[in-house]
């Protein structure tokens, strides 16, 4: 902190802040004058990085538009005869499209459960001190950090004993392990940004707690709820190990369907690529809405 404030102090100690500003501005013009070169160079870095990010995705997309023969017969940077046949396979074959339906079902279930239990808890953490609050908050975090591999086998046994194997609710509940803590942390971050005076004013105005929470508080943290829901959706969507362990056929997620195809002998690369492209789309569609909060979400609401 002390290091940071140094320049300002120097500026003040010269005792010429207005003058200093003039100098600053003239420098700014100077910067503008020699900008073209440096600007082009700095633009290059993110551009190259984005190209690096997009190349593998483009390659997958490219493959999804080719027939299997074309993929295996020769190497080309773009499809000679773009075809949607691979996508048609997925949309017409129940063993493929039911994978998407299964994934979306348990992901949505999980998101709803996670956010609705996390809301009151996050409020409690952001507003009150209570016995063991810090320990509890830490314990939640350890669950976000827990390796799914540790939990795969015990989950399997736990849900077998309840007869829940191969149901959507089993996966949805299992994913709560890391999504509920995540939602609590993100929501707590957003709620702490709302001044406490708002709560107090509402109580003085005669609002009961539930009415205040739904009518006044939730609209205030609407963006936070959206971001928490997005991250729950996302982390449930990208997880494979637990989802695969807990399902066999009826609730099999699309991700597991894809691994099955990889291990089968007749590798149909085109269909596999098309399935991959389709799994990227949900994330790509909603990312626009959370673009300004994405860092905050990944940092568990702490940026």
């Amino acid at each position: 902190m002390t290091v940071v404030s140094e320049p300002t102090q120097t500026a003040r100690s010269t005792g010429a802040l207005p003058k200093g500003r003039v100098i600053g501005q003239s420098k700014l013009h100077l910067d503008k004058a020699k900008r073209p070169l440096s600007e082009r160079l700095t633009f290059l870095v993110p551009t190259l990085y984005i190209v690096f990010l997009m190349l593998p995705i483009y390659w997958l997309f490219n493959m999804s538009l080719k027939t299997n023969q074309e993929i295996l017969s020769g190497f080309s940077l773009w499809p000679a005869n773009p075809t949607l046949a691979n996508y048609m396979v997925i949309f017409t074959d129940p063993s493929w499209y039911s994978g998407y339906i299964n994934s979306i079902t348990y992901v949505v279930l999980n998101t709803v459960i996670s956010v609705s239990v996390a809301l009151p808890a996050a409020y409690a953490f952001s507003r009150y001190k209570f016995l063991g609050d810090k320990h509890l908050f830490f314990w939640l975090l350890t669950n976000r950090m827990a390796p799914p591999a540790v939990f795969a086998l015990p989950f399997f046994q736990l849900y077998s004993s309840f007869g829940l194997i191969d149901t959507h609710i089993a996966v949805a509940l299992a994913h709560c392990l890391f999504n509920v803590p995540l939602a609590v942390w993100i929501l707590e971050g957003f709620m702490s940004g709302v001044p406490k005076e708002i709560d107090e004013t509402a109580y003085i105005d005669g609002y009961s707690f539930p009415k205040f929470f739904v009518k006044i508080f939730m609209p205030l943290i609407a963006s936070g709820i959206g971001v928490a829901a997005f991250f729950c959706f996302m982390f449930s969507w990208v997880e494979l190990l637990i989802a695969r362990t807990l399902t066999t056929t009826d609730a099999k997620p699309i991700a597991a369907t894809m691994t099955r195809t990889v291990s089968a002998s007749g590798l149909d690369w085109g269909v596999l690529a098309a399935a991959g492209v389709l799994t990227i789309i949900p994330g790509a569609l909603v990312i626009w809405f959370v673009r300004n909060y994405i860092a905050k979400g990944f940092a568990l609401g702490r940026v």
């Binding site: 984005i50 593998p56 995705i57 390659w59 493959m63 993929i71 969507w237 990208v238 690369w269 673009r291």
Partner: peptide, 30 residues
């Protein structure tokens, strides 16, 4: 920049694996 850079973070993890499995193959990967 924000949207394009965040895209890989939202790809299901096994699809990340699949993408690179394909991308690195000598016969069909770039």
């Amino acid at each position: 920049c924000l949207v394009l850079m965040a895209l890989p973070l939202l790809v299901p993890w096994n699809v990340v694996g699949t993408i690179w499995q394909v991308f690195g193959r000598a016969d069909i990967g770039l």
